[in-house]
Simulated assay, not measured.
Amino acid sequence: MGAALPKPVQPAAPTYNPEFDKPWRDFKWDQKSELKKHLEEFSLSNPDVKHIRILVAGPIGAGKSSFINSVNNVFQGLITSEAPANSSSSHGESFTTTAIPQVIVMTKVDEACPLVNKDLKKIYYSKKIKEKMQICHDKLGVLMCNIFPVKNYHEEIDTNDKVDVLILKALDQIVRLADDRLFNSSGTLLN
């Protein structure tokens, strides 16, 4: 009998790295005070317009009420629950062909990605979050620059600066887009 042949060496399975080496979106985590002040002092460009209306739409359980409450939490500096959950109606309408500015506030990022659940500051390093944003873009046509991943307050008993700054940035961009909508392409005010 001859000597046993050595078993072939199996190459190691490549390990999946859930994060990019560098953030795929620049984000200043220390801008909470600046964003909050800007929003508190914000006034619309058109003095004839007193208020802007923001439609918050999505399926039941998507985080609409939690986002509204989270915005309130940021400005109150404590956890509140003003917006009633699951108070949605079945009326829906597509705004994809209108000139209404569209954004996506992508909630529940902590549930979607373990990396982000562990460290919220990894949100713009996360391959999973970018992939989910790309899916939103592909399905709904909303520009990637108008998709804002956020973590809502839902279990916390105190506010958190990392959660706050993501919420404030989303709200700031929503308000800016709405204000920009007051002007048409020639730079004149819309009525």
Rank of each mutant, 00 (worst) to 15 (best):
P8Q: 11
V105D: 08
S65K: 04
K151M: 06
Q102C: 02
K151G: 12
P18S: 05
K151Q: 04
H91L: 12
V175S: 07
E131K: 09
I60Y: 10
G63L: 02
Q173W: 03
H91E: 12
I100D: 14
D21G: 13
Q173N: 10
D48A: 06
L189F: 11
N73K: 06
I157V: 13
K127Q: 11
S89Y: 03
Y125A: 04
I104M: 10
L190R: 15
P47Q: 14
R176P: 03
K118R: 00
S90Y: 08
N191F: 02
M144V: 04
G61I: 03
K36D: 11
G61P: 14
P14L: 10
D138G: 03
H51A: 12
N46W: 01
S185A: 15
S88G: 15
S186D: 12
K64P: 13
D161G: 03
L182P: 10
R181Y: 13
N17D: 15
T97R: 14
S65L: 08
E82T: 08
S88R: 03
S94C: 07
R25T: 01
V116M: 08
W29C: 07
A62H: 08
C113Q: 08
K64V: 02
D158P: 08
A12G: 12
I79Y: 06
L35E: 11
P11A: 13
N73C: 15
T107P: 04
N191M: 10
V56K: 07
D180Q: 15
Y125D: 01
V109H: 09
K139M: 13
R176L: 12
A13N: 06
P101H: 05
V142P: 03
I52P: 15
T15H: 07
